[in-house]
Design a protein around this nucleic acid. Structure first.
Length: 273
DNA sequence: GGAAATGTTTACCG
DNA sequence: CCGGTAAACATTTC
């Protein structure tokens, strides 16, 4: 469940089920589930109590009754699930956390996701320090981000995916935001006016807010909330995954090109360079 | 069989 | 330092 609305959906589910729970048992089932930058084995936090679940962009972390946090990134296919201990192990179960009544399970088919123990530096774990605030963060500075983007000689789609500029936007919401604000994905950051960037940031906010209300985007059972339920936003996609289908504004066919090594979907009539 | 998939990091080149 | 590309990670699906 990888972009901001999906990760926030997971965070809310974890908050509902894990707050004030103590991790009485931890079982690691796959070596790649631990990020190499973890300062200690995940099993070291056995006995810790979860006080808070926080998020910045696509990164989640559990605040514990200890000076370290448990950080998680879902990568492409990571999931957290809450299950009764009697439930059969999922095929790609990577880490099991035994809590009071339930198990918290980290499941990940492609193993690009990971967990890590990280030192907290103020509010933010060390592993998340290089990640810029996302657009819903109190610390998000619209004016500063606009200036950073205008200083980039790089294609706007790449800049949107750059988590050190602003975080949380991935391939789906980048395409959707550019479609909504009528910007061609290969327009250079330096070519965009502050006004145009204002409408882009508004589009990022609105598309991700709407997706969050619908429980995120799921194309299949790989992307679900902690109860295994899918979100509905895939029905609202205007550009992503709609190659050769008519633009819902002007009816011209949606194009797909590669930008920064990722697919970019856009309307060649509405989104001109 | 080939290509692509909601992501990040690193190495390398200009 | 900046920007761009390719590869790496692993599994599944079309």
């Amino acid at each position: 469940m990888p972009e901001l609305p999906e990760v926030e959906t997971v965070r809310q589910g974890l908050e509902r089920w894990c707050l004030n729970e103590t991790l009485v048992g931890i079982e690691l089932l796959h070596p790649r589930a631990t990020n190499p930058r973890s300062i200690s084995p995940i099993t070291d936090i056995q006995g810790a109590t979860i006080l808070e679940i926080r998020r910045r962009g696509k990164f989640l972390w559990f605040v514990l009754d200890r000076p370290v946090a448990l950080v998680a990134h879902l990568g492409m296919s990571g999931q957290f699930r809450i299950q009764p201990p009697a439930t059969l192990d999922e095929k790609h179960l990577r880490v099991r956390f035994l809590m009071g009544e339930q198990e918290l399970r980290f499941i990940d088919q492609r193993t690009f996701g990971w967990l890590a123990i990280s030192q907290l530096q103020g509010e933010i774990p060390n592993l998340v320090q290089a990640i810029a605030p996302d657009i819903f963060d109190e610390e998000f500075d619209r004016r500063a981000v606009t200036q950073i983007i205008r200083g980039k000689a790089s294609e706007i789609k790449r800049v949107l995916l750059d988590q050190s500029v602003m975080s949380g936007v991935g391939n789906i919401y980048a395409d959707e935001s550019l479609w909504r604000s009528k910007i061609h994905p290969q327009t250079l950051g330096s070519e965009l006016s502050s006004r145009k960037l204002g409408s882009l940031l508004n589009a990022v906010t609105s598309v991700m807010s709407q997706a969050l209300l619908e429980g995120g985007t799921s194309f299949d059972s790989l992307y679900t909330n902690v109860n295994g339920e899918s979100g509905y936003f895939s029905h609202s996609l205007m550009a992503y995954g709609r190659e050769n289908e008519p633009c819902l504004r002007c009816h011209k066919q949606i194009n797909r090109i590669m930008v920064g090594g990722r697919s970019a979907h856009f309307c060649p009539k509405c989104q001109v360079r």
